[in-house]
Design a protein around this nucleic acid. Structure first.
Lengths: 147, 147
DNA sequence: CAGATTTATATCGTTCACGATGCAAAAATA
DNA sequence: TATTTTTGCATCGTGAACGATATAAATCTG
């Protein structure tokens, strides 16, 4: 059939797109009580690993551009999770630092990865398939991000 | 160690989220000339498979809700790709049908999957890793969508 | 058949992604 | 040093996603 390749079921990207949406959705029960979104959670993960980073470093870790990250950080500043202060050595930079609220949220969030793993693993038996996913996604990301 | 495994798994969502974004981005060179977005391309895939479907059937195929699909279809109607006509047997329904423009776009789009596979495979050698991705994603989607 | 419930679609508000563009500061180069 | 280029961040506009809510029409139930 001439258009066989245009069938939805043969599309890898649609699977990725759907899996990503559904997985982010699975975080809702845990992030809603904290009053944060999934992208905001990612920012917190980065800052919990290392506080006081310029916007561009956060963007690099998340593989996003500043035009996505800046408004995200502005909303997070507004909700009291972090501060954006002018850089001293490089005044173009905005150094992002966690507030007390942002820091203490780490404690409330520390069980989220386990909860998510549990609920995903519960539905992904056997584990081997899950394990196969990670290196394949890494390779895909690496390939698509290289320039 | 159990902690390492949990840490690895907690990053799965970020990988999915990033891989999905980058893969959608890889469609840009092919979709921009057609003047459509990736979600609009997905709608076309569904309609090329079967024309004249109600909104809810399209939403089901894409695993999206009508509050996402309705505005998407409205934009596509505005750009002349499809029509949304009132259903006859069930007047609540909106039957979505392709216009001439939407139908002929299939011909222009038919090489997109090959192009994408080629550019992804180029970066995903060996192919086995790519092949492992599909059933694993299917299982994940199935698990997360069940309710 | 009347009332309750479900279904199909739409609207609104918020938050992301991201291309395009702007601007000032830093770095590179003439 | 003066000029050009690059970098870091921001703003704007558009198109998704999606929770909450609304509104008819269809369906179920008593």
């Amino acid at each position: 059939m001439e258009y066989e390749q245009l069938k939805l079921k043969s599309q890898l990207c649609f699977r990725l797109y759907t899996a990503a949406r559904l997985t982010v959705g699975a975080y809702h029960p845990y992030l809603d009580p904290l009053g944060i979104t999934y992208p905001q959670y990612l920012v917190l993960l980065v800052l919990w690993e290392q506080d006081k980073q310029p916007v561009c470093d956060i963007a690099k870790r998340l593989m996003l551009d500043t035009n996505t990250v800046t408004p995200l950080l502005q909303r997070m500043e507004k909700s009291g999770l972090l501060l954006r202060t002018k850089g001293k050595t490089d005044t173009r930079q905005r150094i992002v630092s966690l507030t007390e609220k942002g820091l203490t949220m780490r404690e409330q969030a520390k069980h989220i990865p386990e909860c998510l793993s549990a609920s995903i693993l519960e539905k992904m038996d056997p584990v081997e398939e899950l394990a196969a996913l990670v290196p394949a996604l890494d390779k895909l990301i690496e390939g698509l991000s290289e320039r």
